[in-house]
Each structure stands twice: as C-alpha cells, then as structure tokens.
C-alpha cells in the first residue's frame, strides 16, 4: 500500500468515527419527538438508523451489480472482489434495516411484521436474493467460474428488485413514506439528523468495504503462495 492511499484511508477512518457519534447524538437528543400521527413518539427515533441502513444496503447492492457488469466486460478479478465484498456488507445493513424496522413496528403497530405490506415483503425478498448470491459463491470452486456465475446472478437480482418496488402499488401498503407525504415533509431538525445518519453510515460502509477487500486480497495471496509451495514440493 503506498503512502497516498494510506493517507486517504486514515482520513476516511478518522472522519467516520466522529460522524457516527454525531449521528447517535442527533437521533437521540437533537431531533424532536413527533407526537402527531404516531402511537409511539420516541420509538420513531430508530427511524434515522433504519432509513440509513436501508439506504446503505441499496447502495451496496447497486455497487455489487455495477462491479458485476464491469467484471463480465473486463474479467478483472478486482471487480469481482469488490462485488462480493459489497454484497456481504449490504446483507448486514439489510439485516439491520429489517430488524430495526421490526422493533419500530412492534412499538407502533403492536406487531413485528405485516405480511400484507409489500415494502416489507420485498425487502425480505431482497435479503433472500443476496443470501442466495453468497451461497452460490460458496458452491463454485474455480475462481473464474465463480466470478462469472455470481455476476450473472447479481445482475438478475438487482434487475428484479427495483421493478418489483415500482410494481407493488397494485397491492396494499402500510409502510410510511416520510420524506414527502400529504401531511407535509420532515421537520428541518429531523431532516438534518437523517442526513447525518445517512452520511455517517455510508462512510462506515466504505471503511468496512476497504477492510473486506483487503482481507479477500490477502486470502488470495495466501492461496497463490500455497499453490507455489505445493508445486515446489512436487518437484
């Protein structure tokens, strides 16, 4: 690793931690409680991290799809590594979004989950698609085939999800749409807290992605060294 990339990394890691702390402060203390229209006014504070986690998971899956397309075109292993690392991290954020959503739903609706709500249903489908993505990668031994196969599946998954979200309007929906509704948009202080949460979790995602890609690269370096040693032992 050269000095320039190291400095960029240090700056990124250095910026992420205070941002995360600020996000926690703004969500829990700075943002006002809403009493109108909600049964549990303080439970909605989970929303800042719920929305931010959902946003980061979409970002991560789109990066997976983008890198998959580039991998199929260029066959550069670096893109396959980024695609698979991003999918794994996106899955963690997607899980976070689902769990935080369920906790809020329990406080607000009295139930953890509403099967008839298509937005919840589709997020679970998204989660399942990327679980399958990870598991298909574990089932192919050859590195080149694994990249090809999982890229195709990653593209297919990302293709089907946004279409599903836009098609779901024919069925009922309970999930709140908060950015702009007929009751008006978010209060400025809440919007600020949301923005800080989104930015800080996005920065956090990029930190984790860098570390995950490093681990993957070390892993392959070790595999190659092992192969070399094995070849020499045979001679």
């Amino acid at each position: 690793m050269n000095l320039a990339t190291r400095n960029v990394r240090m700056a990124l890691f250095g910026a992420t931690l205070p941002m995360l702390l600020l996000a926690v402060y703004m969500a829990l203390v700075y943002a006002p409680s809403v009493s109108v229209g909600f049964a549990a006014p303080n439970a909605q504070r989970i929303f800042y991290f719920h929305v931010a986690a959902a946003w980061v998971s979409y970002l991560a899956f789109f990066i997976t799809a983008g890198c998959s397309v580039v991998y199929l075109k260029t066959r550069s292993m670096a893109f396959d590594t980024v695609a698979s690392s991003s999918a794994e991290i996106g899955l963690v954020f997607c899980t976070t979004a689902i769990i935080t959503g369920a906790i809020w739903a329990r406080a607000e609706w009295g139930v953890f989950w509403r099967w008839e709500d298509m937005k919840l249903f589709l997020t679970l489908v998204l989660w399942l698609v990327y679980m399958s993505y990870i598991s298909v990668r574990g089932m192919v031994a050859a590195r080149e085939t694994r990249g090809r196969i999982s890229s195709v599946f990653g593209i297919l998954g990302v293709l089907c999800i946004p279409l599903s979200f836009s098609a779901n309007r024919i069925w009922a929906q309970f999930h709140p749409t908060v950015i702009a509704t007929s009751q008006g948009s978010l209060q400025p202080a809440m919007l600020a807290a949301l923005m800080v949460a989104v930015v800080s979790l996005s920065l956090f995602y990029f930190c984790v992605l860098m570390i995950r890609v490093d681990i993957e690269n070390f892993h392959h370096a070790v595999e190659e060294l092992k192969e070399k040693l094995g070849d020499e032992a045979d001679e």
């Binding site: 298509m118 249903f121 698609v129 679980m131 598991s135 089932m139 192919v140 196969i149 089907c160």
Partner: peptide, 20 residues
C-alpha cells in the same frame, strides 16, 4: 456449474420468483 446443483436451483430460483 455448481456443486450440489439439485439444491442450488431452488435456492437461486425461489427468491427471484416469489414476488414476481
């Protein structure tokens, strides 16, 4: 192209078709 291809087909297929 995978090991355990009988298991992998439903694992890959069901999430994509459950909603669509």
């Amino acid at each position: 192209n995978t090991q355990m291809r009988e298991v992998m087909l439903p694992v890959l297929l069901l999430p994509l078709i459950v909603f669509t």
